[in-house]
C-alpha cells in the first residue's frame, strides 16, 4: 500500500534519496525550494518553470526532446491530476516522481495554468502512409477489434478537454511509450482505466500509425 501524500512524504528510503537529490539539484539550479510568501501564484509558477521544468519540457511547454512530453495547451486540470498521480506512484516515472515530491502541491494549479496557456506546436510527419492509416483509426476506431474512435474522447481535432488530454502535436516517441505503458499497466491511475482497455486492443502497427498521425496535427 502506498502511503505517500500530496506533501511528498513517503516512507520509502530509496525514494527519499531520490527526492533529496532532486532538492539538492533544484538548489544547485538556484531555485529556492521553500520559497517565502510569493506575491503572485502565476509569478511563482513562472519561476519554477524557468528553474526546473524548462530543462526538459521547454520554457513554452514545447519540449524538443522526443521522450519529454510537450505540455503546452494541455488542460490545466489534466496537468494537476497527472502531477498528483506521479506522487502517488500510480503513474510510474523515475524522473517525474522525485521532482513532484520536491514541489509544494499548492503550486500545481499555477503550473497547470502556466502550461495550459502556452501555444502548442506541431511536429512533422515522416511517414505519410502511416499517418493516413492513423487518421482512420483515430477518427473511426476499429469495429472488428472493438477499438473505440479516439476522437470520441480526445475530440476530433485531438485538442482534448479536461477529462481527456490533448494529443495533437505530441512527440511520436512519447505517444508510443505511453500507449505501451497503458497496455502494460505501468500507467495504473484510476482515471486511465478506460485508456488501458483501449491500448490493450491496439496492434503494434496501429500504435505506430496513430502516433504518426497525431504528431503532425
Amino acid at each position: 500500500m502506498d502511503t505517500s501524500d500530496c506533501s511528498g512524504r513517503r516512507g520509502d528510503a530509496k525514494f527519499a534519496g531520490a527526492q533529496e537529490r532532486t532538492r539538492a539539484w533544484l538548489a544547485a539550479l538556484g531555485f529556492v525550494v521553500a520559497a517565502p510568501a510569493w506575491a503572485d501564484d502565476a509569478e511563482k509558477a513562472k519561476t519554477i518553470v524557468a528553474n526546473v521544468c524548462s530543462a526538459c519540457h521547454g520554457i513554452d511547454g514545447n519540449s524538443t526532446v522526443p521522450t519529454y512530453p510537450k505540455l503546452a495547451g494541455r488542460h490545466p486540470d489534466y496537468i494537476v491530476r497527472e502531477l498528483k498521480e506521479f506522487i502517488s506512484g500510480k503513474r510510474k516515472s523515475d524522473i517525474m516522481a522525485p521532482i513532484c515530491a520536491a514541489l509544494d502541491p499548492g503550486d500545481f494549479k499555477g503550473l497547470g495554468a502556466y502550461f495550459g496557456a502556452q501555444k502548442p506546436s506541431s511536429g512533422t510527419v515522416l511517414n505519410a502512409k502511416a499517418a493516413a492509416e492513423g487518421k482512420k483509426l483515430y477518427q473511426d476506431g476499429n469495429e472488428l477489434s472493438g477499438v473505440p474512435a479516439c476522437a470520441g474522447c480526445h475530440e476530433p481535432d485531438a485538442a482534448g478537454n479536461k477529462r481527456f488530454p490533448r494529443l495533437a502535436g505530441q512527440h511520436r516517441e512519447y505517444l508510443v511509450e505511453q500507449l505501451h505503458n497503458f497496455r502494460n499497466d505501468i500507467r495504473n491511475n484510476e482515471t486511465a482505466r478506460v485508456m488501458r482497455e483501449v491500448a490493450k486492443r491496439l496492434t503494434e502497427d496501429e500504435i505506430t500509425a496513430v502516433a504518426e498521425y497525431l504528431t503532425g496535427l
Binding site: G141, P148, F164
Partner: peptide, 14 residues
C-alpha cells in the same frame, strides 16, 4: 462522451 467513440456523436450508431 466516453461512449461516443463507439456509438458516435449524437448516438447515431453505425
Amino acid at each position: 462522451v466516453g461512449c461516443q467513440g463507439c456509438h458516435k456523436r449524437g448516438a447515431t450508431g453505425s
